[in-house]
Amino acid sequence: MNKRLPVLLLTAPSMIILLGVFLLPMLLMFLLSFENAQESFSFENYLLFVQDPFYVEILWRTIRVSLWTVLTTLVLAFPVAMYMAQATGKMRGIITMLILAPHLISVVIRNFGWVVVLGEGGWINQMLLSLGIIDEPLRLLYNELGVVIGLTDSFIAYMVLAIATSLYAIDPSLSKAASILGASRVRTFFTVTLPLCVPGIFAGVTLVFSLSMSAFVTPALMGGTSVKVLPVIAYEQIMSTLNWPLGAALAFLLLGSTILLVSAFTKIVETKRYKEVFAS
């Protein structure tokens, strides 16, 4: 008892703040999401996702864009992480800094940068046009591709660092052992390196997926009016339409589907063997 008391006292301020500004509003929003236009209790708002194809498509699009972002960050981040793992300590520091440096700039500014680069008059289209590779400008913005590009840029750092951390933990003599036993480099990668950085991949995927699902700024700026995702619609309902109950329902649907997908993914990854090998 006398050991718990100081812990309780020390954590009390943050607990009270969390309770007051986080849990309580969540609870109020949750209750609000069950209100209909007549201010009485109903499932109306949630039923939209079963009945209205517009909302079903938005949910599906949000998941689709997030999954694409996870895939592109994963593919792009892996070689970088592999390079970091075999580099010297100094080089690792430099790369980590380079990866994190863009985050010093507001995501709004960075996204506008992309708008300039990817637009119809942007240098990518201009270059491809002048080289005669394309006849008319590619649509790289205001579609799902644009959103995925923007989100990839925003979140790739998390993926790189998550994978690199798990690669650092792999004893370099393991690949020597595989090699002397007869495994080529490709074989060693797939049978030793990749299985051993599953925890890093898992952390990176979960992180990037959750962040992409709830991302607002990038889809709003780079998706335009045609590629609306759940957070954008929820924002509109609350700020423009002033339909708070529907906005709240959208937010909870987003939360629910993220939790559901992440736990399903966890279930798949955490096999008996995974727990045996990686449990600390």
Partner: peptide, 10 residues
């Protein structure tokens, strides 16, 4: 055989 055993942990 290596100093650090180098068995595949997985």
């Amino acid at each position: 055989v290596f100093q650090t055993y180098s068995l595949f942990p997985h």
